[in-house]
Design a protein around this nucleic acid. Structure first.
Lengths: 182, 182
DNA sequence: TGGGGTATCATGGGAAAATATGGTCGTCAA
DNA sequence: TTGACGACCATATTTTCCCATGATACCCCA
């Protein structure tokens, strides 16, 4: 298990602690803290281990340091970021501005996104999920009307290759910027 | 045997476990977990081994990582997916959101689809199957009216189903995209 | 070819391990 | 001193492992 998958809803206790789902913890492989940034697009926080942070910084370093783009990105990526300790039970304490940004109160939806995961307020998560599913439905429909190779009206799966070909496969599995595999 | 074929209905026990059909297990070749995604069109889950997951992700990696398209697909393919452990007896435990999406309660229809297989709630599976047959019948009819006027139903599959009477059936092709979840 | 024995399979249940969650008690700093 | 936080402990629930059973399919040999 080497990427964040699936979603779980966990409770926040009186002290503000939440358990990171066990399968996410195994991906984090015992790191004692996680890095969190706030999404600019949605009321959601995005988190991952050290490699997640590094990937973000690497993206930043590819920009012109005097551009406005750089200014804004670095502001959000660094200024609005957090490094949160994971306690001995695998829990984290949410910061105030994380709660404010996400609307999280007493429950958190942990949503795996590959090389990072998201923290949603559960109701918002469900809304967004519905919207995402609808969008995918529409996108696929318009795709198949183009005569997209083999794609018949199935799931994304309908396109999958026979099991072989795994050699090059893992190369770009991860999104955008990724560095560690395994 | 390297493809998932045919279909089987197995029971879910009190603890929520259900056996993966033995012939499917041989295709999985001893992998200790399976990957599952939820169909966006139907109340069905689609599952396979590691190669199934990789094939899906490969599809993702062809997209622009900053596009909305990518965002939506990856959300569904990763955030709404599951990696489920297979126990020593070859059983899995269905997650809550999988049950919510499929409507599965105490029985599961495993349906082979080649390089992956589906999990259906048996009644819905039957309805869908009816609807699918009807569609095929209609499509064939309109096709054959283009030229081959004589071709009448003699497919090996044409069984004793009174073709009509299932008027409502095709409507059900879409059923369930309004699943009520938690 | 028939019959008995054997392997495989779906299913069930008990017990141990893991997990999510709750609470207590010091410590350190404001 | 108070309040936040970390380490530590407690517990209910869930998951996993192990063993058992009835049923069926399969095979071998007389």
């Amino acid at each position: 298990m080497d990427r964040f998958l699936s979603n779980t809803i966990n409770r926040v206790d009186k002290k503000g602690r939440v358990s990171i789902p066990a399968n996410f913890r195994t991906v984090l492989a015992g790191q004692s803290s996680i890095h969190i940034i706030l999404s600019v697009d949605h009321p959601v926080a995005e988190a991952g281990g050290a490699d997640f942070m590094e990937a973000n910084l690497r993206r930043l370093s590819a920009m012109d340091p005097f551009s406005e783009e750089y200014e804004m990105w670095s502001f959000c990526l660094l200024g609005d970021a957090d490094e949160i300790k994971v306690d001995t039970e695998g829990r984290i304490i949410l910061t105030d501005h994380l709660r404010a940004h996400t609307g999280i109160e007493d429950e958190v939806a942990f949503v795996g996104r590959g090389h990072f995961f998201q923290l949603w307020e559960p109701k918002r998560f469900n809304l967004y999920r519905e919207a995402a599913r609808e969008k995918v439905r529409l996108m696929r429909r318009s795709l198949s009307s183009l005569g997209d190779s083999t794609s018949q009206s199935n799931s994304p799966a309908s396109q999958a290759q026979p099991a072989s070909s795994r050699a090059g496969a893992s190369a770009n599995l991860q999104m955008g910027n990724k560095e560690q595999d395994t």
